[in-house]
Nucleic acid binder design. Structure first.
Lengths: 189, 189
DNA sequence: TAACAATGCTTCAAAAGTTGAACTAACTTA
DNA sequence: TAAGTTAGTTCAACTTTTGAAGCATTGTTA
């Protein structure tokens, strides 16, 4: 039931985006945020704004799903760290690079996550300064549970090969964007 | 000169993404974060992680640009509010919808932005509870200055019609994503 | 038209997330 | 072995976000 509702909303919105004129007659369920770019060319800031909004929404969603799973000891940001670790067995540095985090930031999260038993931290053999970080069983379980809920939305977004390709394209573009912005901050604008 | 550097970096990375194998031999300037998805299918969480990273990078960049312009009285988040207002003349509610903000959050920012003279707030005639919000000259100037710096990056990302189309597609997909996630939070997962 | 509900927005206090500077410990090199 | 480098941590300050409660104005209804 919920599924159908969501599905319907997506359909509606798609046509709305395509026609672009967006006469949102008496349809309160459609966020005005989405109907904005009228076929013209997307500017950099529009893109950034959209990314910010989408990110906010995802965080909200994550918070809700976590609530349902009864996870109250950590926040969405920490969960994102867990996902960044994934199945890997990383050093802190690797983790920093993988998530573009700040050192002290990750240190802070790591401490909590280790204390709460979501990740295992083992000092490296060859270099005792360095730590090997990986998900504990508890961490894996949480990620697994969240991934499961998330598949639902995935199927709403990607319904055929075409949409899958679109998604891949968007993903690649975001990576390019990340790169451009990373280099810009690094080598000065 | 800086321009060339950035450009080169993008070229390098593009081939890297395409070959996907990503043998990052002795090229320290390439963030490992970007070389991740090996041609397989993008999961929802990968996408979310990327969006989070990209958002972080943009915020960093914005902070730097603001520093250069000598803007020290407000932060990136406030600037995003300015951009959300844009050329509009909105009520607070409109602004909330446009940026998916929380009421108290916007109120908080608005207060600062009004105090510092970046925006004008006028009580509506017909409904004195409601406020009309718009950028002041100072606000417009700041946005203009930031947009100018930003055009540089835009040109790095979008170099021909094809890339422009890619960008539009990605933008549309992000909007779809926003909608799916918004509805998910709204109507329960 | 007086009472009450709804709306539009603000305030406040607390929590969450982020940053930068200073620090410790372990390793490397001259 | 002294000086320098690297890996990671700690701490204190800051920004951003959240939720509950509040105020003024407008709409509604008895």
């Amino acid at each position: 039931m919920t599924r159908e509702l969501l599905q319907a909303a997506v359909e509606v919105e798609e046509s709305n985006i395509k026609t672009a004129a967006g006469s949102n007659l008496a349809n309160a369920s459609i966020p005005t945020a989405a109907i904005d770019n009228d076929g013209g060319h997307v500017t950099h800031f529009e893109l950034a704004r959209t990314i910010e909004r989408v990110n906010r929404r995802f965080t909200d969603l994550l918070r809700i799903e976590m609530g349902k799973l009864g996870v109250g000891d950590i926040g969405p940001a920490q969960v994102m760290v867990l996902f960044t670790i994934g199945n890997g067995d990383l050093s802190v540095r690797d983790l920093l690079d993988k998530g573009h985090y700040l050192g002290s930031n990750v240190s802070y999260y790591l401490k909590q996550l280790v204390d709460l038993g979501y990740i295992d931290r083992v000092a490296s053999q060859r270099d005792r300064r360095s730590a090997r970080i990986s998900l504990s069983q508890k961490g894996h379980d949480l990620c697994q549970a969240l991934r499961a809920t998330d598949d639902t939305y995935h199927r709403l977004l990607v319904r055929d090969e075409g949409e899958s390709r679109e998604l891949d394209n968007a993903y690649r573009l975001l990576q390019k964007l990340e790169l451009v912005w990373t280099n810009a901050t690094r080598y000065g604008a």
